Structure formats: C-alpha cells, structure tokens
Computed example of a mutant assay.
Amino acid sequence: MTEPVLSIPPPADRPASAAGIPTSAVRRSRWLAFTAGLALVALGLLWELVLARTGGGTLAIKVVPLVLALPGLWRMKLYTYRWLSLAVWLYAAEGAVRVNSAPGREVALAGLEIVLSVLLFTACAWHVRARLAAGRLIAAVA
C-alpha cells in the first residue's frame, strides 16, 4: 500500500507569501522599522554632533550598530530584525538615563530617543511575528 502524495496547489491558490511576495503586514512593518531605524540614526548623529555636543562628538559612534542594521532591514533579513529587537533597548535605556539627568533641551531629545526605540522594537517584533505567521501558513498549505 502506498502513501498518498501531497500535491502543492498551483500558485494562484497559494497565499501571496508562498509565491515569494511579502504580505501587507510584512511590507508595512519593514517600512516602519526602516524609517524608525533611520530616524534613530539621524537623531543620534544630530544630538552628538550638532545639538548637544558632549565628548567632542565621540559618542556619535553609538549609531554604528543601527547603521549596520539598516541594509538588513531593507532586505528583510529575519536575523537582523531579531537581533535589533534586542539591541534597541540599549538606546531606550540611554534615553531613560538622559531624560532624568540631562539639562534643558536634551530632555526632549532623550524622550524622542525613547519613543523611536520603542517604535523600532514594535516594528521589529511585528515583522518577525508576521513572517513566522506567513511561514506557518505556507507550511499548512504545502
């Protein structure tokens, strides 16, 4: 007795993500993550080099991990979204420390850093969740 052969439905019957096309949730989370990451890089550079220079601008090096993550975010590398969702809390922690200890306008910059960090984390978590859900859907159809 032979086992039944599972056939894969034709591309028209398969979900969009099965054909290699990202779902709308994946596309939206990618754009949100990329935009928030880019904004966090811009804020870090402007803060350390122009708006509130501390340490002669050497603290601008803190944006290097974000700059390295941007190509992975753009290419939708799942690994990048995963490690960045953990690393972004370092920026949120820095913002939390500075919001309580910084003088004047730096408090607003620190608050913005916290907001962008939480937004980036949310977008990364949303992206990972949407990609994994799409993968489960493909596995169920196949």
Score class of each variant (00 low, 15 high):
1 M>Y: 05
1 M>F: 08
1 M>H: 07
2 T>F: 09
2 T>V: 10
5 V>H: 01
6 L>A: 12
6 L>F: 11
8 I>A: 03
8 I>C: 01
11 P>M: 00
12 A>T: 09
13 D>A: 12
14 R>P: 08
17 S>D: 06
18 A>I: 06
19 A>T: 14
19 A>Y: 03
21 I>V: 15
22 P>G: 10
23 T>M: 07
23 T>Q: 04
23 T>W: 01
24 S>G: 00
26 V>F: 01
26 V>R: 14
26 V>P: 02
27 R>Y: 00
28 R>M: 03
28 R>H: 07
30 R>G: 10
31 W>G: 08
32 L>I: 11
34 F>Y: 14
36 A>T: 03
38 L>M: 12
41 V>K: 02
41 V>E: 01
41 V>I: 15
41 V>D: 04
41 V>H: 02
43 L>W: 02
44 G>A: 07
47 W>Q: 09
48 E>T: 12
53 R>I: 14
54 T>G: 09
55 G>C: 08
55 G>F: 10
56 G>C: 05
57 G>D: 06
58 T>P: 00
59 L>N: 13
59 L>W: 05
61 I>F: 14
61 I>D: 04
63 V>T: 09
64 V>F: 09
65 P>A: 04
66 L>F: 06
66 L>E: 03
67 V>P: 06
68 L>K: 03
70 L>A: 04
70 L>N: 05
70 L>H: 06
71 P>W: 04
71 P>V: 07
72 G>D: 10
73 L>E: 05
74 W>H: 07
74 W>I: 08
76 M>R: 13
78 L>C: 01
79 Y>I: 07
79 Y>G: 06
80 T>M: 05
81 Y>M: 04
81 Y>P: 11
83 W>Q: 02
84 L>A: 05
85 S>E: 12
86 L>K: 01
87 A>H: 05
87 A>M: 15
88 V>R: 03
89 W>P: 07
89 W>Y: 13
90 L>D: 01
91 Y>P: 08
93 A>W: 13
94 E>H: 06
95 G>W: 03
96 A>E: 00
96 A>V: 06
96 A>W: 01
98 R>Q: 14
99 V>G: 02
99 V>T: 11
104 G>T: 11
104 G>A: 15
105 R>I: 06
106 E>A: 10
107 V>G: 02
108 A>V: 13
110 A>T: 05
111 G>E: 10
111 G>M: 09
111 G>K: 10
111 G>I: 09
116 L>M: 11
117 S>R: 02
117 S>A: 15
119 L>E: 07
119 L>W: 07
120 L>P: 10
121 F>V: 05
122 T>Q: 06
122 T>P: 00
124 C>S: 14
124 C>A: 15
128 V>R: 05
129 R>T: 05
130 A>Y: 09
130 A>N: 11
130 A>P: 15
132 L>G: 00
134 A>W: 04
135 G>S: 11
135 G>K: 14
137 L>Y: 00
138 I>P: 02
139 A>I: 12
140 A>W: 06
140 A>D: 14
142 A>L: 14
